[in-house]
Amino acid sequence: MELAVNIVLLSLLVTTAAALVLVRGLLASIMLTSIYGLLSASFFVIMDAVDVAFTEAAVGAGVSPLLLLLSVAVIGRHEARNAGARPLFAVLLVGITGALLIVGTLDMPAFGRADAPAHLHVAPRYLLLSGEETGIPNVVTSVLASYRAYDTLGEVIVIFTAGVAVILILASGTHRGSARPHSAPVDTKDPHTILQVVSKTMIPFMLLFAFYVQFHGDYGPGGGFQAGVIFASGIILYGLLYGLPAICRVIRPPVVELCSALGVLVYGVTGILSMLQGRPFLDYSVLADDPIRAQQIGIMVIELGVGITVASVLIVIYYAFANQFETNGN
C-alpha cells in the first residue's frame, strides 16, 4: 500500500514538474508550484519526515504562492519570449549537469540500507541518547537546535540576509533603505465583507496556532521556522484584506525591522553567554545547574529567536512588495 502511494505521488510530482516547464503564463506556473509543494508535503508525511512536511505545508500552502503572486503583480503576468536566448546551450548544460548528478547517485548506498554511512556515523547516538542528553522527545528538534545549532544559526542568518536584500532591492528612492509604506489607502469601493468577517474569526486562531507550534516543537512536529511562517501568514492575510496602512498601524514597520535583527541577536547572545563562562559557543550547559534543564532552556530560547526572525523577515518582505505595487498604481 505504502509503496503504491509512494509511486503514485512521485509520478504526480514528475508530471507537475513537466507541466511547470511546458506551461506559459506566470500565474499558471505559480499554481503548479503550489501543487508541487502540496505533493512534496504529502510525500514527506509518508516518508515519516514530519517536521519537514510541516515546514513544506506552512510555506507551500500559504506564503510562497503569495509572495510569488505579489512579485507577479509587480512585474506583470506574461512570460516574455526571449529572442536572444540559445536554448541549445542551456539544454546541453542542464543535460550534462543532470547526467553528472545521476552518476553521483550510483555511488550512493541503496535507499533504506542499514549500513549506509548516514546511519553509522552520528545518527545512532542522536537516536539513542538525545532523549537522555537533552530531555526532549522530538529528536529532530534536539538535533536541529542543540547538536547542530551552528547550522541552524547559519540558516537563520541566511533568512535575515534575504530580508535585508529584499529591502535594499525594493526600497524606493524617497525612503531609502526602508520598506515603510507611504501610499494612500487602497480603494475601498468594493468591500470584501465575506472575506473580512471570516478572516476576523480565523486570524486570532492562526496566530495562536503559531504560538502553539513554537512552544510544542519539543514534543511534536514544529518549531521556530514553522511558527514564524504561520504567524506571518496571519498578519499578511490581515494586510491583504484591510490594506497596507491598516496592517502598518497594527505592527509598525520599524518594529518589524528591529525584530528581524533581534531574533538573530537572541540566538547569537545565547552562544556568547556560554563562551563567557569558558565553554564552547552555543554550549547550553551554563544556562542552569542541571544540564538537561539547561539544554531545554537553551533550545527554547534559540527556537524563539528563530521564530522571531522568520516571522519578521516574511512580514518585512510583504511590506516591501505591497508597498511596491500599491504605489506603482498612482
Binding site: V197, I203, P204, L207, F215, Y238
Partner: peptide
C-alpha cells in the same frame, strides 16, 4: 506559556480591531 500566548494574541487582535460582534 499558554497564558502568555493567549494574552499576546488577544493584544494583537485588539490592535487589529477584529474583536467585535462580527468575529
Amino acid at each position: 506559556l499558554g497564558v502568555i500566548s493567549v494574552g499576546a494574541v488577544t493584544l494583537i487582535a485588539l490592535r487589529m480591531d477584529v474583536v467585535d460582534q462580527e468575529s
